[in-house]
């Protein structure tokens, strides 16, 4: 590849099959002006070292596959221009706070389980009854949850959240924001069913509001905001239950 400039990538390597410890391997890359970090990794894999394992698919910032630590920051590698890191070197590591399966590939199974825990779907009895047309939802009602529905599941927020390393059972920003997205959706009636998963110490109250999740989020989902709103709602509910006599409410 006829490039214009050179830069060195230091890539985190770990192979579960060779019994060795992780290490960093350096590769020199000639790159074009519009190349992103992912382009460089793909070029290395294609031309120099096919043993590197990393995830990617859309290379347009929407599939959420290619999150990694670039010079210590959680980034979508398809979204990080190489020239911004000149003259280098660029250190590329798997996302922080996850077990590493191989090289830049992290274990996502825990994340997938967390997503399921918050019941991220519309809960109401007539959900499969399409005969009466759409549920009405005004633009203002959409605005109440819309930003929280923009999550691409890239998990950068988990890498940015220190609670994830201090309390590994924490549901984490993306999952809580997703639960909150459905709680705030005017079509949903399932808030009560999400309370158990979301309101425990490993849920909303595990969040200490560092706020870094919203800073590193590439899609402006604002998980920190979602979680704080969730805390307020949960606290209000608690007071309401406290004040109301027992058995008065359903």
């Amino acid at each position: 590849m006829a490039g214009e400039k050179r830069i060195t990538l230091e890539i985190f390597r770990y192979n579960p099959e060779d019994g060795g410890e992780p290490f960093f391997q350096s590769y020199e890359v000639e790159y074009l002006n519009h190349w992103v970090v992912l382009d460089a990794i793909n070029w290395i894999k294609d031309e120099i070292d096919g043993t590197i394992a990393h995830r990617w698919t859309c290379r347009m910032g929407v599939c959420g596959s290619c999150g990694m630590m670039v010079n210590g920051e959680p980034k979508l590698s398809c979204h990080s221009l190489l020239r911004d890191y000149a003259p280098g070197p660029v250190r590329v590591e798997p996302l922080q706070h996850f077990p590493v399966e191989k090289d830049l590939m992290i274990d996502k199974s825990g994340f997938m389980e967390r997503l399921a825990e918050v019941k991220p779907y519309i809960i109401r009895d007539d959900v499969n009854d399409t005969g009466n047309g759409e549920y009405l939802q005004t633009p203002a009602q959409i605005a109440a949850y819309h930003e929280h529905s923009m999550c691409i599941n890239c998990m950068l927020c988990y890498a940015g959240c220190p609670v994830m390393s201090l309390e590994p059972a924490f549901l984490g920003p993306a999952a809580l924001a997703l639960g909150q997205r459905y709680n705030l959706d005017s079509r949903d009636k399932g808030q009560a069913e999400r309370v158990d998963a979301m309101s425990g110490d490993e849920g909303l109250w595990g969040c200490t509001f560092v706020g870094e999740c919203s800073v590193v989020c590439p899609k402006h989902v604002d998980p920190a905001g979602a979680i704080q709103k969730g805390k307020i709602a949960a606290a209000k509910q608690w007071y309401a239950n406290f004040i109301k006599p027992k058995g008065a409410k359903k």
Binding site: Y121, I122, D126, V127, N128, D129, T130, G133, E134, Y135, L136, Q137, T138, P139, Q141, I142, Y145, H146, S149, Y182, D185, R187, D188
Partner: peptide, 22 residues
């Protein structure tokens, strides 16, 4: 139309008119 309404019922945030219709 039925399929798109079904997806709406499942939570797809289709853009809306002022009156709340799709």
């Amino acid at each position: 139309p039925r399929q798109l309404i079904q997806l709406e019922h499942w939570g797809c945030p289709w853009s809306r008119e002022r009156d709340g219709s799709v």
